[in-house]
Design a protein around this nucleic acid. Structure first.
Ligand SMILES: [Mn+2]
Ligand SMILES: [Mn+2]
Ligand SMILES: [Zn+2]
Ligand SMILES: [Zn+2]
Lengths: 141, 141
DNA sequence: TATGTTATTGCAAAAAGTTGCAATAAGGAG
DNA sequence: CTCCTTATTGCAACTTTTTGCAATAACATA
């Protein structure tokens, strides 16, 4: 299934329009699969779609995140990165070497239930980054 | 105990100097107790210490965070806020009304142990924000 | 297919955050 | 108290991100 076929209905269902800009950006996120910064997205997407502006990239990434097609994350430097929304997961990141690994959401299920019953909140988002020292970097401590 | 008496030794112990700028910023964080944006810190601190620059505020907040005297957090808009480092805690934030509440770190202890044994990482930081819907906003869904 | 509505974009200007470097001042040594 | 070393600051230039608004284009309707 093409990106257009996959994502257009999702936007329409929510009353939004598919545009060449949104499609180009979704395409980049979809096929990279990794966390990308807005300027990385701009870089790649504007190769396919000349005339695309950074303003639009910022706005579109935020829009896609709000509507569940992309997920934002903080990896520790104070800037957002984005990835296409697929399976729920979280991250562990090493403060020293920067190594990153994924954590299945299942590991956090219990915590989510506990937080919900302790607070009355219903937790919606998942894509948390926890910081620490990777096995390698612990040795040199 | 004054801010100077409390924080100067902590910096000295790590080989750093106490300065009027650092003291003014620590004073603001200490007495506000809340999460503050860099520009809120600048606003308040420069009232006490004319000539303070925003550059220095940014650099100092990052410095204090690296050295454990302040804690950075993301509250959902992609920008850092900072608070004085006291007890370990996390946050729950409502996506709709913006309401925020604290969560004791004790509630996350089990998860931290689980993540550590599953990954080999040693988790160091704590000050995570989880997002969801507060009890009030769940009604209007 | 042509038309109207309005969501979305690009542009220009502003705001927020970062960086390199020379001047300043904290604090250890004499 | 004075001098010396160098961590720290302020300044200016730069990069990144946000915002208001007029022009554009998606797409529903006829
Ligand atoms: Mn991820
Ligand atoms: Mn906090
Ligand atoms: Zn590491
Ligand atoms: Zn709420």
């Amino acid at each position: 299934m093409s990106c257009a076929e996959e994502y257009t209905p999702q936007l329409r269902a929510r009353g939004y329009r598919m545009t060449s800009q949104r499609l180009a950006i979704l395409h980049v996120l979809h096929h990279s699969g990794k966390h990308l910064t807005p300027s990385q997205v701009y870089e790649k997407a504007s190769r396919k779609l000349g005339g695309l502006t950074e303003t639009t990239v910022y706005r579109t990434l935020e829009f896609l995140a709000e509507n569940g097609l992309a997920r934002p994350a903080h990896m520790g430097n104070g800037h957002f990165v984005y990835e296409i929304a697929r399976h729920e997961h979280h991250h562990l990141k090493c403060r020293i070497c920067g190594d990153e690994m994924e954590v299945k959401h299942a590991l956090l299920e219990k915590l989510y239930r506990k937080l919900e019953s302790a607070s009355g909140y219903r937790l919606t988002d998942s894509h948390v980054t926890f910081f620490g020292l990777c096995p390698n970097c612990q040795k040199g401590e």
